[in-house]
Amino acid sequence: MRHGPLVFLAAFFALSASWFGFVLTPQVQLGRSVQETNSVMKAELYPNDRPGNARQGLEIYRANGCVYCHSQQVQQNGMLVNVVLTDAGKNTMAVADLLNEEHLGNFSGPSVGAGLPKTILTNASIDVATVLAKNVKTAGGVTQLRLVPVGPDIERGWGTRLTVAQDFVADATALPGSLRVGPDLANEGGRHRDLNWQYVHLYNPGAVTPKSPMPAYKFLFEQKKIGKQASPDALQLTGELKPAAGYEIVPKAEAKALVAYLVSLNSDTPLFEAPLTPPAPAKSTNAPAK
């Protein structure tokens, strides 16, 4: 071929461009990430190391291919803001007038300062909320802006913010998944913390989620004769799932590890790249309550 070597080189560079773009550059950008103290709200490492049992559970998750039906990537479609009035200032009339002008309610001087902190504007865009906050500040009041991520995944309760690369830094194998037959598991630890529920769900998904298409994982459990007393982690089954009298179903080590992993799944910490206003803590502390 006349231009053989030239064409070969061109094809080589074209193909190596994708290697450069999707193998080398991500490794340079993300591959050396470490657990960082970039959690905006708490001075802690994020992500925390999973407890030892949960780390083994990740291996069980991988070996049994849970990733083929469950993803671990919460998506977010946008960010809305709630504006919370925390202090009506000295000149409450000014603040009340401002809020009445903006059609946010019918306030008078005393009423605007009552029942603080209270939300004066919900689900506004970032621009609208910032403008309102500035105006209230000029009028002498003090506001807090609470960030509210939105999206179908978030409304389903699968998470409170989008999943980012930092969430996977502490895991030996990153398994974000590519198909959702069942729900997303990125925050499973927040949704189903009851160990018995998790065990029964693995043993027979139909027992807790009727007619679920999820296969049963009976091989993770064993049937034992009840000793002097029932084991503490024996499954509490009902109806026809109950084993014969005198027997109990007990999770094997793999099941315990897997459930420990599932219960440790939590990615709700606000980060710079995934901002979020967590709910205010129950007890007031020295730290600024957000």
Partner: peptide, 22 residues
């Protein structure tokens, strides 16, 4: 088949969906 008969081979670790599918 495992989607329609979740109890198929439920006691066999090697036959779980996550190993059969790959």
């Amino acid at each position: 088949l495992k989607f329609h008969m979740p109890d198929l081979f439920a006691n066999c670790a090697a036959m779980t969906y996550g190993r059969v599918h790959p």
